[in-house]
Nucleic acid binder design. Structure first.
Length: 590
DNA sequence: TTCTCCCGCCATGTT
DNA sequence: AACATGGCGGGAGAA
């Protein structure tokens, strides 16, 4: 083949899409990718504008016509797989945006990468080849590559060349990120943001405007101490890197997609198993804003766009799940971690994860085209997954590699959503978490300190799998009410018993929410200052809805009351009847 | 109307 | 200078 572009297959290239990034004469260091002889769907007439694979013409008159939401891609053996048969009855005029989604692209990216690296000892891939193979512009690939880099799945080796390392070691990365989160005091920060989130009348005070006077937010923010240990800057090797000049395009900083992705996972991993959930508001505030200087109000949605990109890729990999938390009439987006359990030695099979994701009835795509695509993806990765797994075992027969049976049992994460329909309350969870995590964080600091001090004496690996120790005989703490907001002038409430679990490493005890003690998060409520009187007992956050409690200073007990210091703000008129919905219900509304 | 997020411009880094 | 990378936000589709 003298010239790929001069070949009869050149029509396969989306010239418009690649004209900027794939100039004629691009030198391929690897074997040039040979396109299949007939990529076009057999029963689809040639379209001179969208020559390849376009299942349905894009309705948008995009001049660049860069995105080919092709429903056809290459199978494992290089043969073209089209979905045209499945979509023959689909209206070709209708192209859903979801058909071009980053998530779907990500899954196809996995397939393309797998095909590219199979049999390649270096596992090196050429981005342009992959982009062409997927018939998407290279720019779109970068978004996925960035996330993959953040997951240590690939790294750059040369211009346009990346080495695919796979996601087998994802559990270890998660363990590392969890440690990093602990060291950074991220759980504390998440907690503080969650607390503050409860303080703004989001609905009553539109974004960009000042919050209402009677929100508790100001109390919380002004009373929140700033400690060096919780400074917002990531601890990740910023020292060694030159402080980039005053540049809004903070390429290596916290706004980069890769950094944001890792930190997003860190936020999720800041929670104990089974409660690794975070709302979009909380995540974006923790990740995008500096709570120490920018306050706790969620950033504008425009600043959250990267988070959407990351989430879409992570969802596509089956690492997180997006659900909605229903509060009144408002749906709060909630990201739930459902990736592999952090573990230094476990292995992860991303194909199985994706396959499992796509096989789930609740994830059945909405349009026939998407369904056809995902069916093909499932079909393909079913083979890849098995092959990949067996290849992993063949290629990495090290002593550390767990046996096959063990891998299989570990790679399928158990769904943390078994009780996703139960009521729960962020704030109360956070309060419970905080107590646990304070203890754990303290413990981890001590452990790390000890390990650093006696590194030479202790050859044992840092996070060797620890057999679940007999839990110490500790009376479990009672259901925890939310910590009261810290309001200037109010004395601290007596501390609730701290969970003194000396659990090694970061094996969080499972937390099973008790529906009877749990209330939903309220991100839209007003504070009733009149209820906060020095002479009156203080209220708890659990007063927000339903059962009310307040703490009686004199008797050091919680008392039931009917008055609440907080009032839910409804959209529209205050006092209007809200449709009967269950507060705090988690819905998979997508 | 608000939420999502595709899309491509263009700044900056690299060759 | 040309190309590679990726931050960023406009604006359109979806809810």
């Amino acid at each position: 083949m003298t010239s790929l572009y001069g070949s009869p297959q050149a029509f396969f290239l989306n010239i418009e899409a690649n004209k900027e990034n794939i100039p004629p004469g691009t030198e391929l260091k690897k074997e040039p990718f040979v396109y299949p002889t007939e990529p076009r769907s057999a029963n689809r007439p040639a379209d001179p504008d969208h020559e390849n694979l376009m299942p349905s013409p894009a309705p948008r008159p995009s001049p660049a016509m860069s995105q080919l939401s092709d429903a056809s891609f290459l199978s494992q053996d290089g043969a073209t797989v089209t979905t045209s048969a499945d979509e023959a009855d689909d209206d070709p005029e209708v192209t859903s945006r979801k058909e071009k989604s980053l998530g779907l692209l990500c899954q196809r990216f996995l397939i393309a990468i797998n095909e590219e690296t199979v049999g390649s000892p270096t596992r090196e891939v050429h981005l342009e080849t992959v982009a062409r193979k997927m018939s998407v512009e290279k720019r779109r690939i970068y978004d996925i590559v960035n996330v993959m880099e953040a997951l240590d799945a690939m790294h750059k080796t040369n211009k346009s060349y990346y080495q695919w390392q796979g996601l087998e070691c994802l559990p270890k990365l998660m363990a590392d990120l969890q440690i990093e989160a602990m060291e950074e005091g991220l759980p504390e920060r998440v907690l503080r943001v969650e607390q503050a989130m409860c303080s703004f009348t989001e609905l009553a005070s539109p974004r960009g405007l000042k919050p209402f006077k009677d929100t508790v937010g100001s109390f919380v923010t002004t009373s929140t101490p700033t400690t060096p240990s919780t400074s917002f800057e990531p601890v990740v090797k910023t020292d060694s890197e030159k402080r980039s000049r005053v540049d809004s395009r903070d390429r290596q900083g916290r706004n980069s997609l890769a950094q944001l992705c890792r930190r997003f996972l860190m936020v999720l991993l800041s929670n104990p198993k089974n409660v690794r959930k975070v709302s979009l508001d909380v995540a974006s505030t923790v990740l995008i804003k500096d709570p120490e200087t920018e306050g706790f109000e969620p950033p504008s949605r425009s600043r959250c766009r990267r988070l959407y990109d990351i989430a879409n890729v992570l969802v596509a990999l089956g690492l997180i799940k997006k659900v909605h938390y229903l509060f009144g009439t408002k749906k709060i987006p909630l990201f739930v971690y459902c990736g592999p359990e952090p573990d230094e030695h476990a292995k992860f099979d991303v194909f199985q994860s994706v396959e499992r994701l796509l096989s789930s009835p609740q994830n059945v795509p909405q349009t026939p085209v998407i369904k056809a695509q995902t069916d093909k993806i499932v079909q393909q990765i079913a083979g890849f997954g098995k092959r990949t797994l067996s290849e992993q075992n063949l290629q990495k027969p090290s002593g550390n590699t767990p046996k096959m049976a063990k891998i299989k049992s570990e790679i399928i994460p158990s769904s943390p959503l078994a009780d996703e329909n139960k009521l729960f309350m962020f704030a109360e969870l956070a309060a419970a978490q905080k107590i646990r995590e304070d203890a754990i964080a303290q413990l981890s600091r001590t452990l790390i300190q000890n390990m650093q001090n006696s590194q030479s004496l202790a050859p044992a690996p840092v996070l060797a799998p620890v057999p679940a120790p007999e839990p110490p005989k500790v009376v479990p703490p009672p259901p925890l009410p939310m910590s009261p907001l810290r309001i200037h002038g109010f004395p601290q409430l007596p501390k609730l018993p701290v969970l003194p679990t000396a659990r090694p490493k970061f094996n969080f005890p499972d937390y099973t929410p008790n529906p009877t003690n749990i209330r939903p998060l309220v991100s839209q409520m007003t504070f009733r200052p009149d209820m906060f009187d020095d002479n009156k007992p203080k209220h708890l956050m659990s007063n927000i809805l339903g059962e009310s409690k307040k703490f009686n200073n004199q008797q050091n007990v919680f008392e039931h009351t009917t008055s609440s210091a907080f009032q839910v703000v409804k959209k529209g008129e205050m006092g209007a009847t809200r449709p009967k919905k269950i507060f705090g219900e988690i819905q998979n509304l997508q």
